[in-house]
Amino acid sequence: MDSKKLNFLKEKAKELRITTLKMIHEAGSGHPGGSLSEIEILTTLYYDIMNVKDKDYRFEDRDRFVLSKGHCCPPLYAICADKGYFSKDELMRLRKYGSILHGHPKAGTPGVETVSGSLGNGLSVGMGMAMAFRKQGKNDIRVFVLCGDGELQEGAIWEAAMCAAHNKLNKLTLIVDHNKLQINGQVDDIVAISPLKDKFEAFGWNVIEADGHDFEELEQAFKKAENSDRPTAILAETIKGKGVSFMENNAVWHGKAPNAEELEQAIAEIRGE
């Protein structure tokens, strides 16, 4: 990756982190921890990898993104606004009555492909899309699904994992935001999901491990996934609350809005001041 692109992605990520925290602060509730851990993943997808356009969120052959961990929607909304799918003014109306930006994504918000947030379902939804595109002969469309790691405790995930591999849906890529925390603590203390690589391989998936905050590793992973003859799971090692010292690796920030003071400190840290 050339340094110009890398710097561009880094700046986008900073911007997204700040916007995300402002949105959650303004809403008075939300999920900063898992939103911050997925920032580089979303940035790489929307500004580097996916076939998407500015303004036009409906063109037929666009790649699809399913945010299965729907509670972490603020960064996705921020990207959609940045792409010009709706006004940036709407971002500060997150979770407010009448806003298109629901606490968990609804269908019909421009740029948001599907309802999500009831955990464990997004992989099936994305798999269904990949099935439809195969049927339609649209073999260039890629479908990306982002799941949390705690979410992998849901049984439906493994129903979908089995089925996607059985059907060799190679255009389907799952990214696991492996930040190792869920609302009540460490994922592996609550109900262990490890070893993830072995599990997905046993289910017949192509598995790639990557640093989920490293743009070059993520880009490489997405490029490798494209050539797979099977569905790919990218296990993205991440840090919950990434970029804000007091939020990092702290389950308390799974579902809590920062107050004005905390927001100010967080923004300063993200800007590197």
Binding site: R64, T114, G120, S124, G128, M129, M131, A156, E159, A160
Partner: peptide
């Protein structure tokens, strides 16, 4: 569960 959630995806497409 997979069947009906996938139906959503297929219809969505």
């Amino acid at each position: 569960q997979n069947l009906f959630a996938a139906a959503s995806g297929v219809a969505n497409a």
